[in-house]
């Protein structure tokens, strides 16, 4: 599957905007990302291993926190996982209903 990297973290991926990983679940995908780029860990997780509350993971357009299986949700090779900072709520799910004028 593909993991899209937000601009502020591309400094750790040699400026790549997307990274391909082999994974069966969201957890496995993130683990693969962290194995390749260990510097990501402190940006995404608290010291006790919890996803930082302003970090949103989207599986395609769905917020992983609200999927029935959460981070254990199954992923397909064609799926995209996005890492989006919550500037102040909103995100991809809200973008779909964003006012245009």
């Amino acid at each position: 599957m593909t993991i899209e990297i937000p601009t502020p973290l591309r400094v750790y991926t040699a400026n790549q905007s997307a990274v391909a990983v082999d994974a069966n679940t969201v957890t496995e995908a993130v683990s693969a990302l962290l194995a390749r780029y260990p510097e990501f860990k402190k940006h995404l997780y608290t010291p006790d291993g919890k996803l930082r509350s302003f970090v949103n993971l989207y599986l395609n357009d769905e917020d992983v926190r609200y999927l029935p299986q959460g981070e254990e949700s199954a992923v397909q090779p064609s799926d995209t996982l996005s890492i989006i900072p919550s500037i102040a709520g909103g995100g991809l799910a809200v973008q779909a209903g964003a006012p245009s004028a």
Binding site: I87, A88, G89, G90, G91, P99, A101
Partner: peptide, 17 residues
């Protein structure tokens, strides 16, 4: 597009593009 939904509604109310 990840600004808060509240902000989006305020801008829509004022009529900005």
């Amino acid at each position: 597009s990840n600004v808060s939904p509240e902000r989006k509604r305020i801008l829509r109310a004022y009529g900005a593009e």
